[in-house]
Simulated assay, not measured.
Amino acid sequence: MSSFYVLDSDSVSIRQTAVADIPEIVKLQEESFADLAKIGNIWHPDELKSHLNIFPEGQLVAELEGKIVGSATSLIIQLSPVYADHTWNGITGNGMLTTHFPAGDSLYGADISTHPRVRHRGIGHKLYQGRKDIAMRMNLKRMIGGGRLYNYCEYSEKLSPLEYAIKVVECNVHDLVLSFDLINGFNFIKILSNYLDDARSLNYASFIEWINPHYRQSLK
């Protein structure tokens, strides 16, 4: 559809999510994550409303010509130890963000999506930059997340999840999610098992981390 065609990302604006955006975000989720939508693993209106009630500053949308073409959901947490194992349901309060901890030191990326018709045009990068801006503005130490190993299902008979992730880090294999995270300045930390019910990743995710270069210890 021509209304989704983008020559560059300059015409895309990133702003805070509003309640009126919820129906479009649900539709975006259905089209961005068709595989997860089949099993109900996408945002539902009650969850999105909860996000806005709990942490409105952490919710972003990408807008193009009046249409929502991307979204990002975040919350603040404090892990102990800093690289503790966790699951998506556990860290997000089963998607409601009730685990949001304003006094925490880490912005957690619970979800990021771009419409399939506008991928690879810088929109995801802009959403990540929006998250980084939040982390810097709120003087958070880092941004972390669990990215599903999207293409691992194609390599699982030959490689362990860690071996697969290392090959992605070394640019010997491309992964739709982890490769994108690495390009956006994240470091791969370790593998998270049983992270999310997902046939493509076989439930494995990569623990990723971006350190805020402007973090000021004295203010925390």
Rank of each mutant, 00 (worst) to 15 (best):
V12N: 00
Q217N: 09
G124N: 04
I183W: 04
P116S: 11
A84E: 12
V168M: 06
S106A: 14
G66I: 08
A34K: 11
R137W: 00
P45D: 09
S71D: 04
H174P: 00
E63Q: 13
V177G: 00
G90D: 09
T87R: 08
Q59K: 09
Y150S: 11
K132Y: 11
R216A: 12
M136S: 11
A72R: 01
K49I: 14
G95N: 08
L97I: 10
Y155L: 03
G93I: 08
L48Q: 02
I144C: 05
G66C: 10
I189R: 08
A199R: 13
P116F: 09
R119L: 04
L202N: 13
I68W: 02
E63H: 02
H115C: 09
K49M: 13
L36P: 03
A20Y: 03
V82N: 08
S74C: 13
Q78E: 15
M1P: 03
P81Y: 10
F4L: 15
N203G: 03
S160Q: 03
G70C: 02
H51G: 07
K49R: 15
L7I: 05
G147N: 08
A18G: 06
L196Q: 10
P213T: 04
V19Q: 13
M138W: 10
A84P: 02
I14Y: 00
A37F: 01
R200A: 12
A135P: 04
H125L: 09
S113A: 15
P56K: 15
A165L: 06
E31D: 12
K132A: 08
K126E: 05
M1N: 07
Q59F: 04
I134K: 01
A110M: 05
I208E: 02
I208R: 04
L75Q: 14
A72T: 02
T99M: 09
Y152M: 09
Y5S: 11
Y152T: 06
G58W: 04
D175N: 09
N89L: 03
K27H: 07
I22Y: 05
Q29N: 15
N53T: 13
T73M: 11
L162F: 11
L107C: 05
T87G: 15
D198K: 02
A110Q: 02
D46H: 12
H125P: 00
D181L: 06
V169P: 00
Y5N: 08
G70P: 01
A103C: 03
Y150D: 11
D35S: 15
K126W: 01
K167N: 15
R117V: 04
H44P: 01
H44V: 12
L64K: 01
V82C: 03
K132F: 14
D21E: 10
D21W: 05
Y215K: 01
N94F: 14
N184W: 05
V19F: 13
G109S: 10
L149C: 04
H100I: 02
R142K: 15
E209D: 14
S50D: 12
G104I: 06
Q78W: 00
L149R: 02
I22T: 06
A72V: 01
N203P: 01
A165D: 06
F4M: 12
Q16G: 14
A62T: 01
M138S: 01
Q78N: 14
R15S: 06
S106G: 01
W88K: 05
I14K: 00
K167H: 14
S160I: 07
F33H: 09
Y150Q: 11
Q129I: 10
L79N: 11
A84R: 12
E163R: 10
S71G: 13
S32H: 02
Q16I: 10
I189E: 13
M138C: 02
A34V: 14
G185W: 03
G40A: 06
K141E: 15
